Amino acid sequence: MDSLVVLVLCLSCLLLLSLWRQSSGRGKLPPGPTPLPVIGNILQIGIKDISKSLTNLSKVYGPVFTLYFGLKPIVVLHGYEAVKEALIDLGEEFSGRGIFPLAERANRGFGIVFSNGKKWKEIRRFSLMTLRNFGMGKRSIEDRVQEEARCLVEELRKTKASPCDPTFILGCAPCNVICSIIFHKRFDYKDQQFLNLMEKLNENIKILSSPWIQICNNFSPIIDYFPGTHNKLLKNVAFMKSYILEKVKEHQESMDMNNPQDFIDCFLMKMEKEKHNQPSEFTIESLENTAVDLFGAGTETTSTTLRYALLLLLKHPEVTAKVQEEIERVIGRNRSPCMQDRSHMPYTDAVVHEVQRYIDLLPTSLPHAVTCDIKFRNYLIPKGTTILISLTSVLHDNKEFPNPEMFDPHHFLDEGGNFKKSKYFMPFSAGKRICVGEALAGMELFLFLTSILQNFNLKSLVDPKNLDTTPVVNGFASVPPFYQLCFIPV
């Protein structure tokens, strides 16, 4: 009986604490739906499609509103004006990374994606500088992407125009580009180590996009005490870190300090320079996690976009025909596509942009946080508050993009057929937390897609009208449904 009384008292205290925290903070924060004790607004949000729920709530509470995930307040920004004001106009104040408990377990605050403060700034600055020195957006990395595009075309030829699921092959190409940047090595598509790495990356994007992960991140005790797919994700990350550590040891034994070959060499050189400046942010643990982040951000996002792009091109054969006509006119058949071609191919450029806009790969991006107490639109948001960005509300804005739910390359073309930029184009987020590999991803999408369409016609196994382009999961990332196609050599 005594234990029951204690339990009831504990629960009562928890409920009172929950109510007090919510009521004391709500006077400062933007308005929002009334949260339930302990669980907050979790029942009012469709976990399978958070973005749709945010759109519905914005119609009631406006472009800036507050939700509670458990006891934790989260300020939501919906629509271009609110997102721009926060991420661009007040970029420094909104540059923090929001709480992501599962990532905390995986990387302990290291790396480039989930770190904060001085650690994040130094690692991000170093990573950007190193990638630029190796030619991100310049010639040397373009050579690597072109080489991988040629290998991709050869792998597709091996399908002999038979029906195939493109998931694996389209994942190999961007993964190999990242391998060449980090390890100075590309792998054969049949290499077992490479296959294991690909498998872990593919599993992780599916797990991260599941409703279960949303629950884990908002009720963090689940991570330590409950079984579930989150444990598989943590094991996959541990596998990748151990693999990278092996490569780091190989580099330490063979590195030429006067001739760095890749990202690992550059990081080890930085560690050597910083060894007298303790404590340094440049450690082996930081290198492991930064490399894992580059793999995660640079492989599955690009391969998922490529997979979605081919599905949309199957669905819209008239678009595919126009792209192939432009390829034939500008590039021809006797040389590989290059980035200089893009400025002469406005329709193809528009298609690449429209694919990214339409699929809305990361509907709410990753959570941000404010780095200080900030007054925002007459609300006071306390330091450390998590900020949720609705990228969907920007990419699918119906004023900027008429009929935003329709796939239409003319969203990025003017009346004369010239490519038209849009400030609403934010597939990689915006501001200080914009994806480090934005330029690389854009290069890969253009070169891989043009190389495929230069060499193959795409054949659907069903009537294009019957192809479903609805994402199968739409949590962290929008993942396309399973499909097969035939690559018919031109």
Rank of each mutant, 00 (worst) to 15 (best):
D2P: 13
V5Q: 04
L9A: 15
W20C: 05
Q22A: 10
P30L: 01
P37M: 03
L43Q: 08
I45G: 04
I50L: 14
S53C: 10
N56P: 11
K59S: 12
T66I: 03
L67K: 00
L67T: 14
K72S: 07
I74D: 01
E85G: 09
I88N: 08
E92Q: 07
R97L: 05
G98Y: 15
G98V: 07
P101K: 05
N107M: 07
F114W: 11
G117Y: 10
G117R: 08
K119D: 10
W120E: 06
I123K: 05
R125N: 08
R125P: 05
R132T: 15
G135P: 11
R139L: 13
S140N: 14
E142G: 03
V145Y: 00
Q146W: 04
V153K: 03
E155A: 15
S162L: 11
T167C: 08
I169E: 03
V177L: 06
Q193A: 13
L195A: 12
L197Q: 02
K200T: 10
L201V: 14
N202T: 11
K206Y: 11
I207V: 09
I213C: 13
Q214A: 09
H230I: 10
N231Q: 15
L234W: 06
K247M: 09
K247E: 13
H251W: 02
Q252Y: 15
Q252S: 07
S254M: 13
M257T: 06
C266L: 10
C266S: 15
L268E: 05
K270D: 05
K273L: 11
E274W: 08
S280K: 08
F282M: 05
F282P: 03
T283L: 05
T283V: 08
I284D: 10
E288T: 15
T290Q: 04
A291D: 02
F295A: 05
F295C: 04
T299A: 15
E300M: 15
L311A: 04
L314H: 01
V319K: 03
V323R: 00
Q324E: 09
Q324K: 11
Q324P: 01
E326G: 00
I327Y: 00
R329V: 13
V330M: 08
V330K: 11
R335C: 02
C338G: 11
Q340V: 10
M345W: 01
P346A: 07
A350C: 03
V351F: 08
E354S: 02
V355M: 11
R357Q: 00
I359S: 13
P363S: 08
S365P: 03
P367G: 04
H368V: 04
H368P: 01
D373S: 06
K375G: 06
K375S: 07
K375Q: 14
R377V: 01
T386R: 08
I389D: 02
V394Y: 14
N398D: 14
K399M: 15
P402K: 06
P402Q: 09
F407S: 00
E415A: 15
K421R: 10
K423D: 12
M426F: 08
C435V: 03
A439H: 15
E444V: 03
L445F: 09
F446A: 00
L447Q: 04
T450P: 01
V462L: 09
V462G: 09
V462W: 01
D463P: 13
D463Q: 14
T469R: 03
V473G: 14
S478V: 15
I488R: 04
V490I: 09
